[in-house]
Write a protein that binds this DNA or RNA. Structure first.
Lengths: 346, 346
DNA sequence: TGAAAAGTTGTTAGCGCTCACAGTTTGCTT
DNA sequence: AAGCAAACTGTGAGCGCTAACAACTTTTCA
């Protein structure tokens, strides 16, 4: 079925060279070729050179399938990503993949818009069948990580947006302190009524940001009020911005930039201006943040670093290094014009 | 008091069952098991049942490595994605992957931020070594597709944002007519001086949008002026918005939403309001578009459909179907408030 | 100088599967 | 009841590679 009618035109593709072809050309045994290919010691350098020339001449490349069959290793990892195309997760996925490429590892990506346990388990099983040596999970939903962790895999697992699972490797920015910094900034500006527009309840990041906000307020004897629980989207920010009670408030910390944008828009529709009537601070620093009106004060996460850290953590675990030291970066406060001094509350 | 045969508390990782284990348990030959597994005919149904039971009992799953080694097929495809985490491409990647999962195909993703020929060729070679049966390219850079197409692969190739290469399967929205619709909308509103903020020169989509803009202007005897060539980012939109000459202009068609946002911001800084002083129209309909100020009139692309179409096109080519019919959708004009009636030009 | 040690190369046996074909049973015809 | 085709099932040979170890060289040093 792979033979189609154009085949008589194309020259018969010369069969990929095998290790035996190289061996014959170099006048050595296939095992010596294998040694050269795998960079093992105890090969005379003159022999090595001859083999390398033969390899180049025949354009030999080892067959991963054959190798995987015998070694049960594949130099391949599986990546599970749930959710839609939000900026944060998709950037992380992208840089994770890019880092894997740099390290000459292959990655199977399983994207799914939903994150029900069955799909996730199915993805993991498919990965296992493919002999992946490690699995990464980039998911906004806490449950996803739990499902994979609950499968008691024998291969390493690393997750973004981690729950404090014991024994689970997690990588990510310090959401908690990032949020505290954001709120601290607002307090320094004189704000006292600082509400929160939360992210989805099943997101660890969302919960950590909320916890940071709440703790910082608590440390300053200020009371906390959540004006809504959104789903990260601008439209959810807008929805809560339209409906919420603003009395006593001079600032709102939104769980991400996209919701901030929706929120500001709704506030404008209610006749309020930002930051004069209400200061708004977001989280993530998406590329648009600096160019909306007003430019968004926010907390920047470095998704490239996170993605690359996830990969390196996973690879070191695959190498057997179970050290618990996990990279965690501190997000940086970016001050723009959506926050300003508190004006008197009416 | 002997326990059930199934041993749940094995210390040693119990070696994965092979086709021979199943054969022994079912009292048949390994070949018969293979027939059952591959759903081949000529197996007595009673035998089939016995084998299936053995498979279930032993939790047998076929080894893709062994299978790939002998069949040279892998039920795996390779996806090359270049560029950064822009909304359009990353959405397409995501939905492509999701569709592949639904079809029970595995996909290797190679992300790279740059797109130099060497990296791309390297990625393709890695894919070939893994016996992928098809390759998809999602890249803003025209060159990327050319590189892959130039490798004269024997496996099918499908690309997003296509050049009119003969023999190359391409999927995507009709950028040209989408752009014409956008400009037509502006003309209907009374605009006569309609400039373009172009996307990067090496992007086919960018060129198609520009061509659509230019042709629609030409069809109405209006003159065309490009105020800048950006890189899709809000910051590039802002940069050109700051510097450009606006005389004689009442509207600008930007090549994407993100640049529109930067552009509008720059215009505001120059003391102009949108749409009163200048109508702006974007392209893509990113989630933020409806919530910036003013909400962006734009041309919506359905990235989910595009991603899924790419996958199905690729799979049908893998199946040997070389039909040239390629899915192409017409982007939809979304009218919001960044466009309005033309006011008198000064 | 000679033997052990170290360095180098070759041989054999699979990894788990499919393919080609050989062998066996069953069903149907006459 | 014989005979033959069709339906089933089994056997053996690889796919391309690495692991284990055997065999052969060269070096080292008493």
């Amino acid at each position: 079925m792979s033979l189609d009618k154009v085949d008589y035109v194309t020259e018969e593709a010369p069969r990929q060279a095998t290790i035996f072809d190289v061996a014959r050309l170099a006048g050595v045994s296939h095992q010596t070729v294998s040694r050269v290919v795998n960079d093992l010691p105890n090969v005379r350098s003159s022999t090595r050179v001859r083999v390398e020339e033969a390899i180049k001449k025949l354009r030999y490349v080892p067959s991963p399938a054959a190798r995987a069959l015998v070694t049960r290793r594949s130099r391949t990892i599986g990546l599970i990503a749930t959710g839609g195309p939000e900026y944060g997760p998709s950037s992380t996925v992208l840089y994770f993949n890019a880092a894997a490429r740099d390290a000459r590892w292959s990655v199977f990506t399983a994207n799914m818009t939903d994150s029900d346990p069955g799909s996730i388990r199915g993805a993991v099983e498919a990965f296992l069948r493919q002999n992946v040596e490690g699995i990464a999970v980039i998911s906004g939903h806490e449950g996803s990580v739990d499902v994979v962790a609950g499968m008691e895999l024998t291969i390493p697992l690393v997750a973004l947006e981690a729950t404090p699972h014991t024994g689970l490797a997690t990588v990510g920015a310090d959401q908690y302190n990032g949020a505290r910094n954001a709120v601290r900034h607002l307090i320094a500006l004189g704000h006292r009524g600082i509400a929160h527009l939360a992210g989805p309840a099943d997101s660890v990041d969302a919960r950590e940001r909320e916890r940071g906000w709440r703790d910082e307020l608590g440390a300053n004897d200020l009371s906390a009020r959540v004006i809504g629980v959104g789903d990260w989207s601008p439209s959810s920010g807008h929805r809560f911005g339209e409906a919420c009670d603003l009395t006593g408030l001079t600032a709102i910390f939104a769980a991400n930039d996209q919701m901030s944008i929706g929120l500001i828009h709704a506030l404008n529709e209610r006749g309020l201006t930002v930051p004069h009537d209400m200061s708004i601070i977001g989280f993530d620093d998406i590329p648009e943040a600096a160019y909306v009106s007003p430019p968004l004060t926010t907390v920047r996460q470095d998704f490239e670093t996170i993605g690359r850290d996830m990969l390196s953590t996973l690879l070191s675990r695959i190498d057997g290094d179970r050290s618990t030291e996990l990279p965690q970066s501190l997000p940086e406060l970016i001050e723009r014009s959506s926050t300003g001094p508190a004006t008197n509350v009416d």
